[in-house]
């Protein structure tokens, strides 16, 4: 289909009243996703948004596309079946850190391993919102919540690292309030063939307000985040004078350009297309406050997609039958048969 699909953000907004808490980061994500999807040249009816359970998982109800609000943690499994059954559909999975990293962790790693062609939007607010404020698998040690009054002793998952470990062929990070960055990341994920994993740092205004502000807030983000651009050195800072260098023991350090003879040539150059995920994994270890938080695309490599592989087997099996299903009679008559005369 060569016709340009003319959609606006409003075309993708359903008639349902949005019921997130006032000030929730999800509003900005919803707006960003609607804006980005409107520009993809995909007919609305071919879009499917599938979610699990949690605040983020209400997302499909607000999208004027096909939508399926499933059960806790299982959206990657449901989406796998949907995409395999109809590879023409454009499938988005939406879920929070509890849904994807905790109860649905198994399904997340396996959809990434299989490389089903769909996009996972992980809204990471590092807290359980809908159940009213317990620590999540991304909260980290020391987090005081109702279920951890003396501080959590649960170490945190680093979502990008987990995704890369599961074989993600596309892994990226963006921020709820960074509208343009968010939209650009979603478009890049859409263009990627395979499972695209996007971690969206999202503010929970009620139970974990400001969790990411020290790194991604308006005033500090230039100094506290670094944009990953394929083929470009890791430079950041309001003055663009800071960079990331790799030490001999394969750890990273922040250096200042022009100090102690440091030049751009000394910096790590991002290679999102590297065959092996080693560099991407190393970058995923960069965390606030010691290091700038990397945003953008960590990894993007080309691998066969699962649903195409399955369809190829069906096509191959049907080739011997003129590209169609054999008759049921032929199915039933396989193996040894015998006739009983009347």
């Amino acid at each position: 289909m060569n016709d340009i699909i003319q959609l606006t953000r409003k075309d993708l907004a359903s008639d349902q009243e949005v019921r997130w808490c006032p000030g929730c980061g999800d509003y900005a994500i919803l707006k960003g996703v609607q804006s980005a999807l409107a520009t993809l040249n995909v007919p609305r009816e071919n879009m499917v948004v599938i979610s699990g359970i949690g605040c983020a998982a209400r997302f499909p109800y607000y999208m004027n596309t096909y939508g399926f609000h499933t059960i806790h943690g299982r959206s990657p499994a449901v989406a796998t079946g949907t995409k395999m059954a109809n590879p023409d559909l454009h499938v988005w999975i939406v879920g929070g850190d509890g849904d994807m990293m905790s109860i649905g962790g198994n399904h997340l790693i396996h959809v990434l391993r299989r490389n089903v062609d769909l996009t996972v939007l992980l809204f990471n607010n590092r807290i359980y919102g809908l159940t009213k404020g317990q620590f999540s698998p991304t909260s980290g040690v020391g987090k005081k919540t109702k279920s951890s009054p003396m501080g959590s002793i649960d170490p945190a998952f680093e979502p990008i690292s987990l995704a890369l470990g599961a074989g993600a062929t596309f892994a990226a990070r963006t921020v709820d309030l960074w509208g343009k960055h968010l939209q650009a990341t979603i478009k890049a994920a859409h263009e990627h063939k395979g499972t695209s994993f996007i971690e969206i740092l999202q503010n929970c205004i009620i139970f974990n307000d400001g969790a990411f502000d020290p790194a991604v807030g308006k005033k500090v983000k230039s100094d506290k985040t670094v944009e990953l651009v394929h083929g470009e050195p890791l430079i950041f800072g309001a003055e663009r004078d800071k960079g990331v260098r790799i030490r001999k023991d394969l750890t990273l350090e922040v250096v200042t350009l022009g100090e102690n003879g440091v030049t751009e040539d000394d910096l790590v150059v991002h290679n999102a297309h590297a065959e092996l995920p080693g560099l991407a994994q190393l970058l995923a270890t960069m965390e606030y406050p010691d290091m700038p938080v990397p945003v953008g695309i960590f990894r993007q490599v080309s691998r066969p997609t699962y649903e195409v592989g399955m369809d190829a087997q069906v096509t191959q099996a049907q080739a011997a039958h003129g590209g169609d299903k054999p008759s049921l009679t032929s199915l039933w008559n396989q193996g040894d048969t015998w006739d009983v005369a009347p």
Partner: peptide, 20 residues
Amino acid sequence: LQAEDEIAAVCAAIGASYAG
């Protein structure tokens, strides 16, 4: 789909039925 677990197996079947 030889799924990763029993729950994924049934959920993928639901997803496929959803898609027709």
